[in-house]
Design a protein around this nucleic acid. Structure first.
Length: 274
DNA sequence: CGCCAGGGGAGCT
DNA sequence: AGCTCCCCTGGC
């Protein structure tokens, strides 16, 4: 099988997997990571800074390199951390392998509609369900079946409540109506993907079921607007515990989203080890 | 304008 | 048995 090997500092597949930005990435028993993005399938394995991607060189260069944001040096961000901010230094040290992926816009809209008032394990299951029901069927290099992400055209045909069968609960109609908005041209994803952060956020907010938090997640994880700073319950708790006088957003102007992700990851997992 | 119930159900304590 | 969960909508 074709494979690409790279040495990549500040990169951890398992941290990215656990960081709650992508829900179609999972670790198999043998430490191999399986990543499905849109209709693409990739297996990868990492030991320290050495990563093995099981795909052709051209596919890696043309797609996965950008997907994992490997061109960016995250030390540029982490070096700007206030040395007096012990909490942030701790958080960044703990999740130093995190990257902000560049995922597909429609996939992120649906994923974060599902994410609301939901936990990561269940979000994964919901997305697995809709992919297996409504996604195109594909076969990987070993002849194993996997499913692509359901296209808006397919989901737009459904009734409001149809996705309850996929465990989406009340979020079913958010996804179905978002699909209808895309198909009808009410929102044009090509256009949105070229808009600056504020305009993109505004356009996304017009979708039924998309509030500020979800819009910011989509901006961050699909459009790579690193100034988006999604505030969920974990971030809110961290803000109250460590930044009573307000988070120094100005200091991290333009890449608050990266900082947010370090904090989120640390709040979710870092405390358990203490 | 602000407040808050309700929505489904898994996974935790 | 209760609470929480990367919330948003709609009714008051």
């Amino acid at each position: 099988m074709d494979m690409v090997t790279r040495t990549i500092p500040n990169f951890s597949l398992s941290q990215i997997c656990r960081s709650g930005q992508c829900f179609r990435m999972e670790e198999k028993e043998d430490h191999t990571m399986v990543i499905i993005a849109g209709d693409r399938y990739l297996e990868a394995r990492q030991q320290g800074e050495e990563c093995c991607f099981y795909c052709e060189e051209t596919e890696f260069e043309d797609f996965w390199k950008e997907y994992f944001d490997l061109e960016n040096d995250y030390a540029v961000y982490t070096e700007r951390i206030n040395p007096n901010d012990a909490y942030l230094r701790q958080a960044v040290g703990y999740g130093s392998g995190i990257r902000i992926l560049r995922q597909e816009l429609w996939e992120m809209i649906v994923s974060f509609l599902i994410s609301q008032q939901n936990n990561i394990v269940r979000i994964r299951r919901c997305i697995k369900n809709i992919c297996e029901h409504y996604g195109d069927i594909h076969v990987n290099g070993r002849g194993e079946v996997y499913y692509g992400f359901p296209k808006p055209e397919v989901l737009a045909e459904l009734q409001d409540d149809d996705l309850k069968a996929c465990n989406l609960g009340y979020r079913s109609k958010y996804v179905v109506r978002a699909a209808r908005s895309v198909v009808s041209g009410e929102i044009d994803l090509e256009t949105v993907s070229r808009l600056p952060y504020c305009k993109a956020r505004e356009a996304l907010l017009s979708l039924y079921g998309v509030g500020e938090k979800v819009a910011d997640c989509i901006c961050l994880f699909a459009l790579h607007h690193l100034q988006a700073f999604p505030v969920d319950t974990h971030i809110q708790q961290a803000m109250q515990a460590h930044y009573r006088r307000g988070f120094p957003k100005r200091r991290y102007q333009g890449f608050q989203g990266v900082i947010q992700q370090y904090i989120f990851y640390y709040e979710l997992y870092g405390k358990m080890e203490a």
